[in-house]
Simulated assay, not measured.
Amino acid sequence: MGAYFFGTLPGLALATASLLATWYFFIAPFNSLALDGASVLALAFFVLIAETIILLIHGVHKAMRALLGDRQANATLAEQRRLMPTSCSTGCRTTWPGLRG
Rank of each mutant, 00 (worst) to 15 (best):
G2Q: 05
G2F: 03
F5T: 10
F5Q: 07
F5C: 07
F5H: 11
F5K: 09
F6A: 12
G7S: 05
T8Q: 05
P10I: 04
P10A: 04
P10Q: 02
L12I: 14
A13K: 08
L14E: 03
A15F: 02
A15S: 15
T16D: 00
T16W: 05
A17L: 15
S18I: 00
S18A: 07
S18Y: 00
L20N: 00
L20Q: 06
A21Q: 05
T22F: 06
W23E: 03
W23A: 08
Y24L: 13
Y24D: 08
Y24V: 07
F25D: 07
F25V: 10
I27K: 11
P29S: 02
P29F: 07
F30D: 07
N31A: 14
L33R: 05
A34G: 03
A34Y: 05
G37T: 14
A38E: 05
S39H: 05
S39A: 15
V40G: 12
V40T: 12
L41Q: 07
L41D: 09
A42W: 02
L43V: 10
L43A: 09
A44C: 12
A44K: 03
A44W: 14
F45I: 00
F45E: 10
F46S: 02
F46M: 08
I49P: 02
I49N: 01
E51R: 03
I53S: 06
I54A: 01
L55D: 07
L56Q: 08
L56E: 02
H58R: 04
G59M: 03
G59N: 14
V60P: 00
K62C: 10
K62A: 15
K62D: 12
K62V: 12
R65F: 00
A66F: 00
L67W: 06
G69C: 07
D70C: 03
D70Q: 15
D70W: 04
Q72K: 04
Q72N: 12
Q72V: 08
A73T: 13
A73Q: 10
N74W: 09
N74Q: 14
L77D: 10
L77I: 08
Q80M: 06
R81D: 10
R81W: 07
R81E: 11
R82S: 13
L83I: 08
L83W: 01
M84Y: 01
P85M: 09
T86G: 14
T86Q: 14
T86W: 13
S87W: 12
S87E: 15
C88A: 08
C88V: 07
G91P: 02
G91E: 01
G91Q: 02
G91S: 03
R93E: 15
W96Q: 11
W96H: 09
P97Y: 13
P97K: 05
P97C: 01
G98E: 05
L99M: 11
G101I: 09
